[in-house]
Nucleic acid binder design. Structure first.
Length: 569
RNA sequence: GGCGUGGUAGCUCAGUUGGUUAGAGCACGGCACUCAUAAUGCCGGGGUCGGCAGUUCAAGUCUGCCCCACGCUACCA
């Protein structure tokens, strides 16, 4: 039995994510996790909220809450939404948990011992009023280039000129408005990634079948300009993991915390420990330590393209640099962006559909199907309401939903309360089953390769094949002259519905559950398609399910289009 | 400016290492069927494969230049 460790990029804590975030990591990761489990593999699927950093502090301040309380609350909100979308995490953790604190400090200590940490003193803007150092983007002032009065410390939004906070005229804190800013020296730790450049290159260029998106981004960072740059991994903040050298204090680093991008990936490991703490598992090390059983684990990460540099370079430096036998990622599946109706989704401007809003309109399966069948794998993809309506109505309601409906209603109305008896497969049935089996094997190969769109296309073709068969067999016609043959055809149709529940479950788990309940079947992958199509025997009970999917009307479509174009409060 | 990713039927997209008349779904037209959520099936119309030049017996598929979109990143390659 193969073992799969699967992680999705961690959603940041400060608010509800939009559909672009969902399809970029959590949703395809869930598809893969569900598929591997269905194939009988052992799976550990982990995700967590990414809770540290300045944006979390500011969001908490805006909400008038202590940051820890704010994070706890938003974690629950995101956890509930995850359940709403049927994301089948084995555990949904928190990067602010104690295990991540200890592990992050542990890794820092190991990296320092390996000579991979540099202490660098820099000058940064300090605000005595706020009692803290200010990140560049939280300082505003007048642009020395164009005179724009709300230029940020890193860039002027008006003339786009790159700025340094010290360039600004009348600089002030965006947090308090304080103007008594001063430049102070401060010491920070840098991860010396540049020292591992060639080792990373060797590793990346020898990976098999990685998406071009992943390798091209990784190699670009490796070779762009003067090559891979060392990265600061500490910040002058309160909210975060205190800088420690393992269990020991780090002289000169008192009051500082690790940068969120250093501790977030480590949460992938810590999350496995939280999983054990939560009583959901026994042994986290057999998933993460190659000296303790993880050497036969295949580890797959899912993320949007903006996360690739951290997962392909920085985190591997952390893992490899520790000198300890931690499990390194085997496959990085990355996604492009999903755009919204001609532009970008925008969290700040509230443009597009957010996870909570989408669920308030339609059940999870509708979104799962559209998003996964249009996953931005090769290029950026675009969400439009018209396209969403067309896909849902045609694929889900007409092709799959109606098939289940026509089969069960015909059988119940014309052939009795239970699975009908009589007749035997003929030439047409054997040809159909052979065709179906071939398509199912193709579907499996796409799912194995995590080719999400191809898999969705093949699944749809498999649904359509059922309609083709039924149209040709025409039991409503054969029943007039040969009731036995009609019984056989209807029996095959009912088995087909049960089979489709299994094949479709990774994409649309709720509908699959409805079909299983109606067919009185238990989950089970059709390794043997012929056997799967004789699972329901004459006399077995079944129910006629309610319509699986409803259609989206033109009116609804138009209404939603105007409703979500605007600004979210 | 540099780098990256794309630019294929009205729309959303496939097109492996260059090879016969460029494909799918949706939309559109016709036919069939009537079990079904006016659902399904079959057939069909529709593309100078962003532009130009080149390599080749042969290019959507390789090379060069240019145009456009999106993203990343900066006056440094």
């Amino acid at each position: 039995m193969a073992r799969h460790l699967i992680t999705s990029a961690l959603p940041y804590i400060n608010g509800i994510k939009h559909l672009g975030n969902l399809v970029g990591s959590q949703l395809p990761a869930d598809l893969f996790a569900r598929y591997r489990r269905a194939r009988g593999d052992e799976v550990l699927f982990l995700c967590a909220t990414d809770e540290h950093g300045t944006p979390a502090e500011l969001a908490a301040a805006k909400a008038g809450q202590p940051v820890a309380e704010y994070c706890a609350e938003l974690h629950e909100v995101q956890a509930r939404l995850s359940e709403g979308y049927r994301l089948s995490f084995d555990h949904f953790g928190r990067s602010s948990g104690p295990h991540n604190h200890h592990l992050t400090q542990h890794f820092a200590g190991r990296l320092d011992a390996a000579g991979l940490i540099a202490e660098v003193e820099t000058m940064q803007m300090y605000s005595p009023t706020d009692g803290r150092f200010l990140p560049d983007r939280y300082i505003e002032g007048t642009c020395p280039n164009c005179g724009f009065e709300s230029a940020r410390g890193d860039q002027c939004d008006n003339c786009t000129k790159q700025l340094d906070p010290t360039d600004l005229i009348y600089p002030h804190s965006t947090i308090s408005g304080a103007t008594d800013l001063e430049l102070r020296p401060t010491k920070h730790l840098f991860l010396r990634q540049s020292l591992m450049r060639e080792r990373l290159r060797e590793w990346i260029t020898t990976r098999q079948h990685w998406p071009v998106l992943t390798t091209s981004i990784a190699l670009k960072w490796l070779d762009d300009g003067e090559g891979l740059q060392d990265r600061g991994i500490t910040r002058d903040l309160d909210w975060g993991i205190p800088v420690m050298k393992g269990d020991a204090p780090w002289p000169g680093m008192e009051g500082k915390v690790f940068y969120v991008w250093f501790d977030a990936p480590i949460e992938y490991i810590a999350c496995a420990r939280e999983w054990v703490d939560a009583g959901k598992g026994e042994d986290w090390e057999r998933w993460w330590r190659t000296d303790k059983g993880a050497d036969d684990v295949r580890y797959t990460q899912f993320m949007g393209k903006d996360n690739v540099p951290f997962h392909s370079l920085s985190f591997p430096v952390t893992i490899l640099g520790s000198g300890e036998p931690w499990k390194l990622v085997d496959y990085i599946k990355s996604f492009n962006y999903l755009n919204y109706d001609g532009g970008q989704f925008s969290t700040s401007r509230g443009r597009g559909v957010f996870m909570d809003q989408a669920l308030s309109i339609l059940p999870a399966d509708y979104w799962r199907w559209w998003l996964l069948s249009h996953a931005p794998e090769t290029a950026d993809a675009e969400f439009t309401w018209e396209n969403f309506q067309a896909s849902v109505n045609k694929d889900l309601a007409d092709v799959l939903g109606n098939l289940a409906s026509r089969v069960t209603k015909f059988a119940r109305a014309r052939l009795g309360e239970t699975v009908p008896e009589g007749g035997a497969w003929g030439e047409r049935e054997r040809a159909f089953v052979a065709d179906l089996a071939a398509r199912i094997r193709t579907y499996e190969s796409h799912m194995d390769a995590i080719e999400v769109r191809r898999a969705a296309t093949e699944l749809r073709a498999i649904w359509a094949l059922g309609n083709e068969y039924l149209q040709q067999a025409a039991p409503w016609s054969t029943i007039k002259a040969d009731p036995e043959q009609a019984a056989m055809q209807a029996r095959l149709g009912l088995n087909l519905v049960a089979l489709y529940a299994e094949l479709s479950a990774p994409f649309i788990p709720d509908a699959a559950g409805t079909l299983r309940a109606a067919m009185h079947t238990e989950p089970g992958w059709p390794d043997d398609v012929e056997a799967a199509l004789t699972r329901l025997a004459p006399g077995d009970a079944y129910d006629v399910p309610e319509n699986l999917f409803r259609k989206i009307s033109d009116e609804e479509c138009a209404d939603w289009k105007t409703r979500f174009a605007g600004v979210r409060d």
